[in-house]
């Protein structure tokens, strides 16, 4: 028949569009996801039961071991007054994450309610909510949080509230946009067409679909809120120094950077790993939700 077949070209890459979160192959993608879930689990253990994974006292200062480099007894070294960095990271997890989680819960609750309201209520209500939201969104987030702290005082609780409030406008926008999109969807029209009542359509079809992105934005938002919380603590506006918290640990280590890099590097690494893990897990959820549409 014809001459021997020649390979014309071979383009690398998956035949279908990249489905992964970071664009790696399916197997790498899965390994990374499992690693992230594992890390998040580890942080959860740190936060809930810190003494399980460390035997030292986060406040115990060993004057003979000031800024000691990583060793067997102090795997991540000691800080400027001789406290174990690893132990302080473990004990600091709770207060660091609490800031982020608290802030997300505040933004999420208020943002979802306002977003649904703006998407479903009569036009004038929607107008009021959205113009108010525009005003909130006009402030850069971190600066709004700082302003709120300036007015009402610092500390971990106020910091979480401040970040939570500053984050609301974004949630409102996302939920409202989603609600409007779903309202116009054909399947909502079809549901009315079947003869379902307005309430049934709202409760059974509209609201659940409009709220689907909530998990995603909350997971993705957790990273940002935690970063902001640690940032406030770094500035001395969140959790105050003797208590272990990653942001304030970094702030302390700032003056001794040339003498002991470990005191600054490891708390920051923990924070980065946490934020990256939530982002990857969040995007994974996002992809799987999109896939079901």
């Amino acid at each position: 028949m014809s001459a021997a077949t020649t390979l014309i070209g071979e383009t690398r890459g998956p035949a279908r569009r990249r489905t992964g979160v970071i664009g790696a192959g399916a197997i790498t993608e899965r390994i990374i996801l499992v690693a992230c879930l594992g890390l998040l689990g580890l942080f959860a253990v740190f936060a809930l039961w810190p003494s399980l994974l460390t035997w030292q006292d986060p406040f115990a200062a060993d004057r003979s071991l000031i800024l000691a480099p990583p060793s067997l007894t102090h795997p991540l070294g000691t800080d400027e007054i001789g406290r174990d960095v690893y132990t302080r990271i473990v004990y600091g997890t709770r207060s660091t994450l609490a800031l982020g989680v608290g802030a997300v819960l505040i933004s999420l609750t208020l943002g979802t309610v306002a977003g649904l309201l703006a998407g479903l209520a009569p036009r004038w209500v929607s107008m009021i909510v959205m113009r108010g939201n525009d005003i909130g969104a006009a402030f850069p987030e971190l600066l709004l949080a700082i302003l709120i702290i300036a007015l009402f005082g610092g500390g971990p609780v106020n910091a979480a509230i401040a970040i939570g409030i500053a984050g609301i406008p974004y949630y409102v926008r996302v939920i409202r946009a989603e609600t409007l999109k779903i309202r116009r969807a054909t399947f909502i029209e079809a549901a009315h067409g079947l003869g379902l009542s307005r309430t049934t359509v709202l409760v059974r079809h509209l609201a659940p679909n409009a709220l689907r992105p909530v998990v995603v934005i909350a997971t993705l938002g957790l990273g940002g809120a935690t970063l902001a919380g640690a940032g406030l603590s770094f500035l001395g506006l969140g959790t105050a120094p003797p208590a272990p918290e990653w942001g304030s640990m970094l702030s302390n280590a700032r003056s001794f950077l040339g003498l002991g890099w470990w005191a600054a590097v490891f708390p920051g690494l923990a924070l980065t790993l946490f934020v990256a893990s939530t982002t990857i897990v969040g995007r994974r959820i996002q992809k799987s939700l999109e896939g079901r549409r």
Binding site: I22, L250, L269, L271, A276
Partner: peptide, 19 residues
């Protein structure tokens, strides 16, 4: 590039400054 960006986006500003 997307791995690098993910890392950079997850890094706290103050820690990046330290590094």
């Amino acid at each position: 590039a997307s791995v690098l960006e993910l890392t950079a986006a997850s890094t706290p500003v103050f820690w990046l400054g330290f590094l």
